[in-house]
Design a protein around this nucleic acid. Structure first.
Lengths: 170, 170
DNA sequence: GAGATATGTCAGCCATGTTGACGTATCTTG
DNA sequence: CAAGATACGTCAACATGGCTGACATATCTC
């Protein structure tokens, strides 16, 4: 481990110190970048009386229509009770509908209504605005590097689930 | 806005669809990458009966000893009541000490005790383990791209504050 | 000396996570 | 076909960590 307190040595004097600084830089940028990006949607959500938890559900349902409740639970990594509350509220507001699975009728397939899709699109537009500005200012090469590092943060066991979001299933 | 439901068009057929996919990929990787990284420290925190909020305070105090309460408030972007609770608990556990500012005696300068520094080092070690593995698997070029994109997510008005963390002030 | 500033604190509320227990419909398998 | 596993829902209680509003104190600045 690098020396955390880093006494009065000049910065960069040792490869170990350099390493720590690179890690802290990543931790900080991830923290500020992530929070600032999510801040972008708070105003839109507040207007609807909804929170971040609702957005996460809307997002993944938009991303993968006919997602089952179980799949959504695995993506969000929360308890079914927590998710139940969120889905109930989205259902009451006519933003999400469910229908029984074709192959397995115990499952509920989730879809956004027009109203739900409209809100998700509005929220996505905010994210898009911030993130595409960051992409443009950093350049395409940086964007692929950005992806690669983040992919490395996702544990092997979750990677397939995350990558599967990019497959069309409609 | 691009068509969210993306009917039966082949992916990549239009620049607009491509753009949307690149944005969604970033949003998802940021979400999963950030949450998986923060998950890395939960076990250590739980052992101490502390939460994420305590970690954020410990982290920034470790990063910038003699930080004032006001500076920490700006970094965390929470209310003084919320921060007060956290600092009080860290103080009670002898992890943080304060002393009056030299130049402005209304200020309180924050520092970690040995015990606090030891915990922060332990937490940092977990972050380091995950993040350096991601850095290694992505390669140095990717790391700088990763930084650049994230820097672009931090609004102009906050950028100085974030970059100042990298300056030594001891 | 008056007002601004840095900090603390009381009290109550809200969003969103947790555990544990239990119920129902449906699927799968011996 | 009966038994057990699975997918989903729900009740209740609780924890964490945000929030607002109001008010107090010490210190700095003009």
């Amino acid at each position: 481990m690098a020396d955390i307190s880093r006494p009065s040595t000049s910065p960069g004097a040792s490869p170990l110190f350099l390493r720590e600084d690179e890690i802290r830089r990543g931790v900080e940028l991830l923290y500020f970048g992530y929070t600032r990006l999510t801040n972008a949607i708070d105003q839109v959500l507040a207007r609807q009386g909804l929170g971040r938890a609702h957005h996460r559900a809307l997002y993944f349902i938009a991303r993968q229509p006919d997602l089952t409740v179980g799949e959504l639970l695995r993506l969000l990594a929360i308890t079914k009770q927590s998710l139940g509350r969120v889905l109930k509220e989205l259902h009451e507001r006519d933003m999400v509908i469910t229908r029984p699975g074709q192959v397995d009728r115990r499952q509920k397939l989730l879809r956004l209504t027009e109203k739900g899709a409209a809100l998700e699109a509005d929220l996505f537009a905010q994210l898009q605005e911030k993130l595409s500005a960051a992409y443009v200012s950093a350049g395409q090469e940086s964007v692929t590097g950005f992806w690669h590092v983040l992919e490395g943060l996702v544990p092997e066991s979750d990677r397939q689930m995350v990558f599967d979001l990019r497959k069309d299933r409609d």
